[in-house]
Simulated scan of single mutants.
Amino acid sequence: MKPAAASASFSGPFALGSFAAPDQAPFPGLVTPGEHVLDLRAALGDPALTTRGIFERWDELLPRLHELAADETADRRPLEGLRVLAPVEPRQVFQSGANYRQHVIDLEVAHRAPDDPRTLEEARAEIAAVMDRRAAEDLPYVFLGLPSAITGPYDDVVLPDWAEQPDWELELAVVISRPAHRVDVDEALEHVAGYTIANDLTDRATVFRRDMKAIGTDWLRSKNAPGFTPLGPWIVPAASIADPGDLRVTLKLNGETMQDESTEDMLFGIARLVSYISRTSRLLPGDLVLTGSPAGNGMHWGRLLRDGDVMEGSITGLGAQRTRCVRETS
């Protein structure tokens, strides 16, 4: 159930989410700042409607959503007592890695070999030069995640018994509206419906293959366990976020701030990421683009996730999520 500490805090007149009352099927809801939810199946006359279905009809439905948000006579129910689910079920999840300058520098330093002859300053300077070259050549680093890893914003996160170094990575997530294939950078934001919060958990111990290092990274193993992507609590329409390139990304672990950085530290902004992905793939309504995580993960602090840890993640204008870690028992 929605914890008492949660509230409908976000920018703009409304947000979208997915909810469930006890012993009832999930439904797409329009959330208003007064902490009430309108069941959009009934309001829009479509009993089979999902949040993804809303994004498939985004241009058509957006004006109607604004009308419903302003209608004080609409039949809303209190947010209290509803279970807040992940706000959308995407078909595809695209994840940007190594997209925050300071974060990449921190990871490079944390993963230095014991016999690395470089000084700390030399290592930082070399990876900074690599990132500058990537940015100049317009080469983001993007890989795929699994929708089955997504869980709700207040659900417990199960740490698998094989995960030796589970880590947090709070990120700004982009939700796609119109299909996008081979779109230019200056057109890319026209395909964005809104934004939400994602925590892209990663087991650092399995990022690189142990059996054959030449194979490279193993994102299936390290990032896609069930529940490794807490998402939400809601999706805020793009028009309600003045500048997604200037949002504060903050993660607290057991009340202590670990990540606290602006999205302006991204090497590749949202338009460049969406355009880049669309050069190869066809983005579909409801798909997610995770934009990378800023500095301050567990490897930086030398403190990984443990049983009982509580993560609280927030991004300016998008609300906050709160999840508790539970170690899997065999």
Rank of each mutant, 00 (worst) to 15 (best):
A8F: 04
S9E: 13
F10P: 00
S11Y: 02
S11D: 14
S11T: 12
P13Y: 04
G17M: 09
P22M: 14
P22A: 15
D23A: 15
L30C: 05
E35H: 03
L40I: 09
R41Y: 07
R41P: 06
A42P: 09
A43G: 03
P47F: 07
A48Q: 13
T51N: 08
G53R: 05
G53C: 10
I54E: 00
R64F: 05
A74C: 12
R76V: 10
R77I: 05
P78S: 06
L79K: 00
A86W: 01
A86E: 02
A86D: 00
P87H: 07
E89L: 11
Q95K: 10
S96M: 05
G97P: 00
A98I: 06
Y100Q: 01
R101N: 02
R112L: 14
A113G: 13
D115I: 04
T119S: 15
L120S: 02
E121A: 09
D132K: 09
P140F: 06
Y141I: 14
Y141P: 00
F143H: 13
L144A: 14
A149G: 08
A149L: 12
I150W: 06
Y154S: 05
D156W: 10
V157K: 03
E164S: 14
V174S: 00
V174I: 15
R178N: 10
V183H: 04
V185E: 14
D186R: 13
E187G: 04
L189K: 08
T196P: 01
A198C: 13
D203W: 11
V207L: 15
F208V: 15
D211T: 15
A214W: 13
A214Y: 12
D218M: 11
R221Q: 11
S222E: 04
K223S: 02
T229K: 10
T229R: 09
P230N: 12
L231E: 01
G232F: 07
G232C: 13
V236T: 11
V236S: 04
V236C: 12
G245F: 01
D246K: 07
R248N: 08
T250W: 03
K252P: 02
G255R: 08
E256S: 09
E256N: 06
T257H: 06
M258C: 07
D260N: 14
E261Y: 04
E261C: 06
S262E: 03
E264F: 02
M266I: 01
M266G: 05
A271G: 06
L273P: 02
V274E: 01
S278C: 10
V289P: 01
L290T: 03
T291P: 06
P294T: 10
N297M: 14
N297P: 09
G298P: 13
M299Y: 12
D307K: 15
G308L: 14
D309I: 13
I315R: 07
A320L: 05
R322W: 07
R324E: 12
C325D: 01
C325L: 15
R327I: 14
E328C: 10
